[in-house]
């Protein structure tokens, strides 16, 4: 992988491998890990002994910082955000942090405003509105 030194998420420089990979929002990771944990629970009585520290810490983290709990809402968030020609990485940052204003969204995801992309403030505003609606009706 070239250009490792100049990695910068603000400009979406995260390496080809990760740019093409599927990003996961915290709430999606929570669903995956909880399911895996349940499976382990069925196989042994003390599943916490079976999992790595990395797994345990990640599970605690995503549970704490999941904006959306219900699987339908999680699916909707991805569906709505994917209408706005975002990169996977941008989509997940927005889904994780749920910015409330256009200014905040651009501060969180500066790449929204670079290289002549189609995002004007109105489009961003609409996107944030759609997001907050899901939260409200969850």
């Amino acid at each position: 992988m070239s250009g490792e030194e100049e990695e910068n998420a603000a400009e979406l420089k995260i390496g080809d491998e990760f740019l093409k990979a599927k990003c996961l929002m915290n709430c999606e990771v929570a669903l995956i890990l909880e399911r895996k944990y349940e499976q382990l629970q069925q196989m042994s009585e003390d599943p916490m002994n079976q999992v790595s520290q990395v797994f345990e810490k990640s599970l605690q983290y995503v549970k704490r910082f999941s904006r959306y709990k219900n699987p339908d809402a999680v699916r909707q968030v991805r569906e709505i955000l994917s209408r706005y020609q975002l990169a996977e990485f941008e989509l997940c940052v927005l889904g994780n942090l749920c910015p409330e204003t256009v200014e905040e969204a651009i501060a969180m995801v500066p790449s929204l405003k670079t290289k002549g992309r189609v995002h004007d403030d109105e489009a961003i505003e609409k996107m944030l509105n759609d997001l907050s609606l899901i939260k409200k009706f969850e």
């Binding site: 990695e7 910068n8 998420a9 603000a10 400009e11 420089k13 995260i14 990760f18 996961l24 990771v29 995956i32 890990l33 990395v54 990640s58 983290y61 704490r64 910082f65 940052v93 994780n96 942090l97 969180m108």
Partner: peptide, 14 residues
């Protein structure tokens, strides 16, 4: 599922 932090990334932490 991997967790990879990036320079320039904004995230929440405890």
């Amino acid at each position: 599922v991997v967790f990879r932090p990036f320079k320039g990334e904004i995230l929440e932490a405890v």
